[in-house]
Amino acid sequence: MIVIKDLHKKFGKVTVLDGLNLTFEDKGIHTILGPNGSGKTTLIKSILGMVIPNQGSIEFNGKQILGEWEYRNQISYLPQIAYFPQNLKVKELFQMINDLRPGSKNEAKLISLFQLEPYLDKKLGNLSGGTAQKVNIVITFMFDSPLIILDEPTVGLDPVALIRLKQLIIEEKEKGKTILITTHIMSLVEEISDNIIFILEGKIYFEGKIDSLKEQTKQSNLEKAIANILEETYA
């Protein structure tokens, strides 16, 4: 589905992606892990065409994405921080997104799933962080796209919403979709992910199943395995 070759990106003097190669072919849940500043969000934004790489190529279903936009019809994206136009009401935001990108399906279902009905007439600027994140999740999941990208989807969510989000992700996976997630919550990773991609200093450090990562680091627990890798690199 996505083939990334030799991706380089610098922001000023800081090298964020340094010759990254990656291929997503399989359906299922792929988790992107890595310490802060390792280039997870930059990688995701490059796939979306929001960040323009200095070098390298990204192919989506066999086509180069540089300068293209139609391929984004196949992608639902949940940004890391929910930024919305502050003056709009929640309801108006949903209407606007529907107008700009026709074909949403399960908006009503999602609104009730995350209990957003009381907030529909509130302005987006007055929402709490968690509620804004719920709005963000509804916008992401209301489209039926084959690729779903979630950048830190759990930020600010209460336990109930977290459980519902997990169910939602698993439902989408069962529909045969490819899902990319970045997160720092290891229990979530162990629970749902099929494949792990570990990014370190702008390169792929590890890619594969959770079990093989545990084997490689000789740790029984994922959190410790990850910590192990990080401590090695800090030292």
């Binding site: 979306l48 065409g49 929001m50 936009w69 139609e70 391929y71 984004r72 019809n73 992608i75 994206y77 940004p79 930024y83 919305f84 136009p85 502050q86 997104i97 700009l100 990108r101």
Partner: peptide
Amino acid sequence: NSREFTELLLAQPIKR
């Protein structure tokens, strides 16, 4: 002021 809106739009299938 509309940067948030712009970022929201950039992830949608709309030409830059």
